[in-house]
Nucleic acid binder design. Sequence first.
DNA 1: GCAAGATTTTTGGCATACCAAATGCCAGAT
DNA 2: ATCTGGCATTTGGTATGCCAAAAATCTTGC
Lengths: 243, 243
Amino acid sequence: MPARKQPKALPAMAEADIAIVRIAPETSFKNKAYEALKEAILKMDIYATPEQVMLDERALSERLGVSRTPIREAIAMLEQDGFVKTVPRRGIVVVRRTKTEIVDMIRAWAALESMAARLITTTARKKDITALRDFFKDFNQDRLPQDHIEEYSKANIAFHQALISLSESPVLVDMTNDILLHVRGYRQLTIGRKDRTATSLPEHMGIIEALEARDTELAEKRARDHTLGLAAYVEAHGQELFT
Amino acid sequence: MPARKQPKALPAMAEADIAIVRIAPETSFKNKAYEALKEAILKMDIYATPEQVMLDERALSERLGVSRTPIREAIAMLEQDGFVKTVPRRGIVVVRRTKTEIVDMIRAWAALESMAARLITTTARKKDITALRDFFKDFNQDRLPQDHIEEYSKANIAFHQALISLSESPVLVDMTNDILLHVRGYRQLTIGRKDRTATSLPEHMGIIEALEARDTELAEKRARDHTLGLAAYVEAHGQELFT
DNA sequence: GCAAGATTTTTGGCATACCAAATGCCAGAT
DNA sequence: ATCTGGCATTTGGTATGCCAAAAATCTTGC
């Protein structure tokens, strides 16, 4: 079949090249619903409630003020993400991860982050690497992380995300963020735990030092071992979270 | 609120334990459409056609004999997978990856596979590791891989998938499979290239040997370097594929 | 003959109605 | 009191129809 006729070139219009980026894409209800539901699922502490959490299409459509159609499409997307599972004629259940699954995810995280570290040693600018220290500038001998766990936990996540970003690898960034979203539920209860916090900060500094030294193998190893340490910790001490 | 009442235990019924399995879950049109479209997208050589490929909801619904609703849900899922991108009032376009993106994906694959290798050295049975050699039993000095590229390429993929599976990590398996689906379009044109095929087989054997020796660090390194080698190859020689 | 504007067509977004399966409640039988 | 069958309800699945924006096409005036 013949190719569709190409749209003809735009007329001259030499003046307005200014700030006409693309107009707001006016995100659809589908995407709004997706974002809203995703945030709601992440916000709720899924592991705090004993019974499994169910969603109802009609209730959601009423709540969000749209019809079921965009809601269903959003649900389909969330199911692809692994956040929910819809069972025909039964309902939509918010997925709970088992301890084993979480450990598994953290291992994958470790894999991706160590690769990011590897790439960073060959491409990132020294300035950007050094800037990673800033995430922890509010912590020191007089202000220990374990005394400000909530704050440190935030800095921790921000550090890891900034680290991955330095790899300039969209794939690594996206995959890691996906994993972090799933692990997030546990984060406050694991990364923030006092006993691990004490060793966390020195390990981070060790990673930064290896990156600055452009020591590819060492940076990779330190990044990997650091996150694998978290996995081992959850595997060993995460029992109480999954009663 | 009180938990939903649990269904009570089944009555005796000692007789009919025969072949009452579970009835087919009767997958929905939505899922059928998803599978059908996914396969169609993967099958078509998206990089062979010069113009971008568009999908039409109505045409698809007619072709598959279902209404637009399940089609749209399937499209929403495919969009989450990154196979298509729907532009409002414009159409649904099958996504083309750039060379840079493919290289990026292969690097992530390397990260995941090296972690799998690491895990395998500590958990897999020797028997299963050794079995990996079978994928290449049809190739030797008298029957070189580069003379049977198509066949070797298949064995290659099967080997990598089997390798990852040995890690017994569902997350690693799933993430890697996702990546392979995206890279597959290039596979025949890259992994199968003669110049790389020659070095591929010995590298695979090297990985297997390290696994058998339970040499965690070496296995990880070899697995990583092998796949990073592919990434470097595509980066260097993949120009012609992305005109 | 051509360009600007009006009109028709195309295409995804959304709302609504109906369907069928799974559950749960309840009356009637034992 | 308990069990059984059936009916009403709930809930996801699917089909349809209409809408608005953007493209494509046609019309018209110079």
